[in-house]
Design a binder for these strands. Sequence first.
RNA 1: GCCCUCGUGGUGAAAUUGGUAGACACAAAGGACUUAAAAUCCUUGCCCUUUUGGGAGUGCCAGUUCGAGUCUGGCCGAGGGCACCA
Length: 837
Amino acid sequence: MERLNFQVIEKKWQEKFKSLKLYNNSPDSKKFYCLEMFPYPSGKIHMGHVRNYTIGDVIARYKFLNNYNVLHPMGWDAFGLPAENAAKSNKENPKDWTKKNIEVMKKQLQQLGLSIDWDLEIATCDKNYYKHQQELFIDFYNNGLVSRKETYVNWDPVEKTVLANEQVIDGRGWRSNAVVERKKLSQWFFNITKFSNNLLSDLEKLGGWPEKVKLMQKNWIGKSFGCEIKFELSSETSKINIFTTRPDTIFGATFIALSVDHPLSKKFINSNEFQEFKNECNKTGTTEESLANAEKIGFDTKLFAKHPFIKEKKIPIFFANFVLMDYGNGAIFGCPAHDQRDFDFAKKYNLEVIKVVSDKQEEELKEAYTGDGVIINSEFLNNLNVENAKEKIIEEIEKRGIGKRKTLFRLKDWGISRQRYWGCPIPIIYLEDGSIVPVDKSELPIELPEDINLNSPGNPLEYHPTWKNTIQRSTGKKATRETDTLDTFVDSSWYFLRFCSPNFKQKPFDEKKINYWMPVDQYIGGIEHAILHLLYSRFFTKALKDCNKEFKISEPFQNLFTQGMVCHETYKDQNGNWLYPEEIEKEGLNKAKKKSDKSSVVVGPPESMSKSKKNTIDPEIMVKQYGADAVRWFMLSDSPPEKDVQWSDIGVSSANKFLQKIWNLNYLVANRKVKKPNNQDEKDIIQGVNSFLNKIDLSINNFRFNVCIANFYEMYNFFRKYLDTNVSEKILKDNLTKIMKLMIPFTPHLAYECLELLDCKSINKWPEIDKKNLKEEIKMAVQINGKTRDILTIKKDLVENEINSIIQNSSKAKKFLENKKVVKTIFVKNKIINYII
RNA sequence: GCCCUCGUGGUGAAAUUGGUAGACACAAAGGACUUAAAAUCCUUGCCCUUUUGGGAGUGCCAGUUCGAGUCUGGCCGAGGGCACCA
């Protein structure tokens, strides 16, 4: 068998891919913006990147071959904490560390043979990038989209920085895993909540997004309908404003619960008991166990509120640990009969339980009834159902002027301040008179200083001897700079716009280019960004449209694909230490030995590759050993791309074997002597290949790359049979050329090498599918009473009578029909015939 | 607790959306070629039958249908999202 030295040909073709551009500028070309989520330059690429970028490359090359004008850029999400951490431990500047990683990873990506236009490369830590980000910040500021709030923040005591809510997982920092503390700080916010409604309703426009992702965003935005109701206190003049989604249960209200941060708490500032209670509440709150067990506790204020609809009725007021200050008004009314939480609370403090929605049961409630039903015990609401009662009571509340209809969102404004060095400086200055203003745009970029000390705790910008001190350009007044930097999610919220004109100097982007290339036609990345990155990018796009009349885009990503993770089994030695795959030797399915001392190893189930579990495989080593094409091929072959895939050395090695067979096939065809043509064989091969083209085209369009690859195997098995038949050299070559063109998106090096060997002249054009020349024969099932008794291989489009006579003459099913009366026949053309006897 | 998704051979998975279940591949067993190995190729794959055949079968239980992996209801199991959101 003829073998191919993939290292040689991959090098050869990568030279050509270096300056590869997928631009088709012919008048009938449509644009296609193919984007994969850009990587954080952490050191080396990992298998997740290989999968992500291979999928993107297939799409980009496929679209290009189909005459699209394709934008396929790549860049670096280059600001972030790891650079600072690495700098601390290696005594290296974060900038140099990042730059070095970018060089390594770029080379690795090039070794995969990706079709990227590297002339568009950007790095978010480059001042030419963050300069424009600072401009955008100022634009947002001037358009009322930035605010400064003093709030409690999630303080990570290990990282010494503020975390976004989304970066807190089960009460712990997402990176450090340290228990997060509450701390009050002045912070910058993007007013993402101004767009709550828009972000929610526009989800409907995103037909090309996975339903799952849209649902997650919907839940995150969390819209709820209800109303506010004012409760008068019986002893005071002040009022308590509550929010409820169940105003229909107002007649079942038996207590009011307030957050410990509610304004009314000021009355209790000197009460030791209250302070104790407040401390108790703060203790629970963030740790995982406390949330799980979450006992409801309250503090009786001994105050009462007047029921707004029942004269004389007084309702006790409590502070309670389960009421949050930052949702609604930090106050609720409790209706124990129809809310489980209120029910638990009422049982604990012996409060009244009044049923106002009938559950059709006589006995006392054992738990809250939250279903629909007929309203009872509620005066003018009686006999209505829940939905109608809600409407009626809101009308009544508004009529009496004691409250109003209201819609609430869970989504909170986006805190963007970070007390870190390696990020985009916030272009704000503080004047001596206390005013806070953005810097003049002419001063941008506000550059990060490079002479910093990373080994002192806290933010190096704060402690830099001079950086902070500046003057306001327009007035010459003394000022100090904001020392916080922007959350790195800001960097990735508009990079897809910068790619459209990465070298544009005057502005963040050239609107003409944006309005041509945007929106991204296909965005590809990990599901872990389902909420944060995608929601922030959507917000940015909408905010920009508000700030800039020439900007016409309202949603950034037309189609979204979220690929699954790459998994590998894990290994632990006898002492429970993780081992790398190269440290062990497998001895069967679930047995392994440590190479060094032959001790036995515990083989764990496949889990997503991570450095901490040491179950990683280095893509670069695999590429060296099996070739980039084989690695790409395997990545796509084993599982549907949206599902997790398990890495297997055997899998990649057999991918390599198959590609060698493909090469051998090309070699044989290229060197084959002319044979006498046989019409039937030639017709068969033309129809067969044409049918495969059709199948593969369909599978690519549906992102079913694993099916696609199965089709290639089938096609190979089909095609090689014709090598020894009477098919002319030309027919064989023409058809193999078509097949190799189909392989370009998957294994570009091999495909181009083979096309060169076959002397193909039009390599950058997808083969046309001749729909009239698809397979003429089909397989049809013959069933008796729903049981398949025979499978006929027959001509397409035969009618029932013709089928009947074939069966009567020769089918295996014939004997089941002898001497039987057919009651009914179900006939589906080209699929099935079913006789009921 | 609430919400969502998914259960198909020893394994990864296909199944034109209600019409041949297990394509394609991996692994395994047997065989061919070879002095031998590697490579390559072929066969097998649950139950009964020597074969021809026949039967069961897509997590479990029902239902709709001529026909269900696919639709409906209930149960069991796995994974993911949210977290006291009023």
